[in-house]
């Protein structure tokens, strides 16, 4: 079962969505998660579930202060750092290479 592209053509094409993630290995990525959370960090591992390992991570959490009933709930942000972080894939919404 030789692949149509022949040997050696395997690794550097963008044929499926996860190739975008593969090309970001050892690069800084932006990750949007469920629950109004975002991460920025260096991508060291991923799999098909979008489980991730990120290094030198900054997490941003967006929290709405809902004390005022007028609805102008201000958005507060909380930042956290982590030197090495495993992220479970089912929380992932979007992954973008950081330009």
């Amino acid at each position: 079962m030789a692949s149509p592209e022949g040997p050696g053509a395997v690794t550097s094409s963008v044929n499926e969505p996860l190739d975008l993630v593969r090309l970001s290995l050892n690069e800084v990525v932006f990750v949007k998660l469920r629950g109004d959370r975002e991460l920025k960090g260096r991508l060291h591992a991923y799999d098909s579930h979008c489980n991730l390992v990120l290094g030198e991570v900054e997490e941003t959490i967006y929290m709405v202060d809902e004390e005022e009933e007028g609805g102008n709930g201000e958005v507060r942000t909380m930042k956290k750092q982590s030197e090495m972080l495993f992220v479970r894939g089912d929380s992932v919404v979007l992954i973008s290479p950081q330009a």
């Binding site: 290094g55 972080l85 495993f86």
Partner: peptide, 28 residues
């Protein structure tokens, strides 16, 4: 689980990236 915070010195990142590429090409 949402996250697992890990000790950075226990993670061999180049090894992990190679293993990731291997797994990706297997999946492909």
């Amino acid at each position: 689980v949402r996250y697992v915070h890990l000790p950075a010195n226990a993670v061999d990142t180049p090894l992990l990236e190679d293993a990731t590429r291997r797994e990706a090409s297997q999946a492909a």
